[in-house]
């Protein structure tokens, strides 16, 4: 009896406090960022031509190096934003940067590289977007960190700034190499 009364009277308050706490916590979350289920899984298979020399490339090229795989396109405004950072960090030889040119016009892509710089070791071209689906790409730019065995270890969504590089990507890469 007592318990019932307590529940009846106190329940609204308890629910209210619970919801408040949850919302408070919710303010610090990032609802629009979707974690990739590919983390700690081998990189998906692909067979794509190189933008510059049409040579076929596959996921086996990833093995033996720590790789930063950057998905970009010439039509993507945010990609231009991060290009200077990528060019700067490409000086670092502990890892290779591979580009994945996503649903792009090849001529535009080449022009774009001349304009903004080319930090990439090689650039794979995915004109249909099918390979990008395998990578779970949903918006450019996206960047994957892949270890020497070809396992995906980290995914960053959005343009990479110098801060992002120093604070998030660099530690991940250093741990792997």
């Amino acid at each position: 009896m007592r318990l019932f009364k307590l529940i009846r009277v106190g329940l609204p308050m308890m629910i209210f406090l619970g919801v408040m706490l949850l919302l408070w916590r919710g303010l610090t979350l990032h609802p629009a960022q979707i974690p990739s289920p590919l983390i700690n899984k081998p990189a998906p298979q692909y067979r794509l031509p190189n933008l510059l020399n049409k040579k076929m490339m596959t996921e086996r090229d990833l093995i033996g190096h720590v790789t930063l795989l950057n998905v970009w396109a010439s039509w993507c405004e945010a990609c231009a934003e991060e290009q200077s950072t990528l060019v700067a960090i490409s000086q670092n030889k502990n890892f290779q940067i591979i580009g994945l040119d996503y649903k792009d016009n090849l001529a535009d892509a080449k022009k774009w590289l001349q304009q903004y710089g080319n930090p990439y070791e090689v650039i794979a071209v995915d004109q249909t977007g099918n390979s990008a689906i395998d990578w779970g790409v949903y918006g450019t730019p996206e960047t994957f960190v892949i270890d020497k065995k070809g396992i995906i270890r980290y995914k960053y969504i959005g343009p990479i700034s110098m801060e992002v590089w120093e604070d998030t990507l660099r530690p991940v890469i250093e741990k792997l190499s």
Binding site: I34, P35, S36, P37, L38, P44, I133, D134, W135, G136, Y138
Partner: peptide, 8 residues
């Protein structure tokens, strides 16, 4: 699709 994009 779930393998690539998650349950989201």
């Amino acid at each position: 699709l779930v393998d690539r994009y998650g349950n989201f």
